[in-house]
Design a binder for these strands. Structure first.
Lengths: 187, 187
DNA sequence: GACCTTCTAAACTGATCGGTCTATAAGATA
DNA sequence: TATCTTATAGACCGATCAGTTTAGAAGGTC
């Protein structure tokens, strides 16, 4: 029998896309094996804890990616450049709105109860990192917090509407609007 | 055997809450029977088409409610009063952010494919109705469209974050911000 | 080559899935 | 009271679920 060898990072990325398309409950093991071409043997070898472990590792993986690519630059880099980079990173990560936020989707059903700490931490840190950069760029704390919250709210809402309306333009339009709002606050 | 008699509108409301909590795939028939106290016999009596028919009727029900309570007033009533009423209706319908938007949640996983027309129509009409009221209140069409879209995006994003963060205040804060933005555009 | 670890393939299991069916309870009509 | 309609209860069905197990393929180490 033909044997394809995968490594765990590949497995995580492949399974993540299935969860993203079908949701946690909607992604059955047979969907996952069919779409990823990983056999059950492989999946349970990499993730002995089954679906729950897959989802936990995927979320940890996403979290690490955001920390490296967005949160740390916001926290440690030159604030205006890091914010500019955040908009680009956001647009490319979410494929201009054609790819949903798995963490946000998990927040909406009872999957949230399984992973509440990870979900909460992801959004909390995003808002805090952006607010911190805005403060470093010269805004008062309260205004920075409000604007940061508004930005993350807008990104999540735009992802929902992009998907709901099947509209490829609303995400970019929303990002531009949010970006301009931050820039005019910093001007 | 004790026999409890339900009427169909009760069944719709009860099942809706289960979908809202668990999502479409997460809400199994046994969850639904356990939480609603409706037996399978009753459920399939009211909804011969099973889960799919339940979800379709629930969405139609929500849609009708929004049309009556929000979209029609926006389309036909005095625009400023209708917009003011929209914010109140939104806050109370979503229980200040403790209740999610079922239509928005369905948009995020493959449930969307089953109900895409209903999902798309709901958001499209909401944005159109609000934009129409803004035009009637004196705004240029393009600005009205942008502001309406921003409002609905913000509401959906705030629902996601309210749930993700377990934060009871973010929804109200976002509604207030969006409301003020519309008011200053109209001033 | 012998051995060992890592990984894959798929048959298999018991539980749960969505959905069907039968029996009957309760009210309406007469 | 007899009958008819509507709605409820829950046993039952085949399919699919998540997860386990067995067997062996591939590659590294000696």
């Amino acid at each position: 029998m033909a044997r394809t060898v995968f490594e765990k990072p590949d497995a995580i990325a492949l399974v993540a896309e299935v969860f993203r398309e079908l949701g946690y409950e909607g992604a059955s093991m047979s969907h996952i094996t069919a779409r990823t071409k990983l056999s059950k043997g492989s999946l349970y070898h990499f993730f002995p804890g089954g679906k729950e472990e897959m989802a936990a590792e995927i979320m940890a993986n996403i979290d690490t990616w955001f920390v490296m690519e967005m949160f740390r630059p916001l926290e440690e880099g030159e604030p205006r450049a890091a914010i500019a980079r955040m908009w680009e990173t956001t647009d490319s990560y979410f494929r201009s709105g054609r790819r949903i936020c798995l963490i946000g989707a998990f927040a909406l059903d009872e999957t949230r109860d399984r992973f509440s700490a990870a979900i909460q931490g992801y959004f909390y840190r995003w808002i805090e990192a952006l607010a911190g950069a805005l403060v470093k760029a010269g805004l008062p704390g309260a205004e920075a917090k409000t604007l940061a919250e508004e930005a993350v709210v807008g990104i999540q809402g735009a992802l929902t509407l992009a998907r709901a309306l099947g509209d490829d333009t609303i995400f970019g339009r929303t990002l531009t609007r949010l970006k301009e709002r931050l820039e005019s606050a910093l001007a």
